[in-house]
Design a protein around this nucleic acid. Sequence first.
DNA 1: GCCAACGTTGGC
DNA 2: GCCAACGTTGGC
Length: 153
Amino acid sequence: MNYWLVKSEPDDFSLKDLEALGSDGEGWNGVRNYQARNFMRDDMALGDLVLFYHSSCKQVGVVGIAKVVKTAYPDPSQFDPDSKYFDSKATVDTPRWFQVDIAFERALRRVPLSAMKANAKLAGLALIKASRLSVMPVSTEHFAEILKMGEVT
DNA sequence: GCCAACGTTGGC
DNA sequence: GCCAACGTTGGC
């Protein structure tokens, strides 16, 4: 079992939006960063748990947990000329971008970015290392610690 | 809205 | 293959 973190702008797509989609979840499309793509394409497995992070908003932080319900397949938006994610260099035979499906698992009490930065146990977390990655791995220890911080007591 | 960080592109 | 210019992300 691997653990992950994905970022989403809640104005665009929030945890509540994911929850509303039920157990089929959502295709995590539009990722256009090679490192993030490689994580999804090569390493994400069925049942992996994913911290859901709200970025670019008033209250940034981890707000819940999602689960990988479908492993990597080509991101259809790369083939759609009307999509803002269209990539003219991608073809059906040689897709460039991949996505997985994730579904809502449960909400957490929000764990603010500031609290994660202040927690010495979370040193080295990719999120804190100012990475602009939108999909990143999280160690088992870091995942457990963030979960602990987000449990409603 | 500002701006720092940093990934990507393209000329050479 | 280097590196400057450019565009995007994302916290504040």
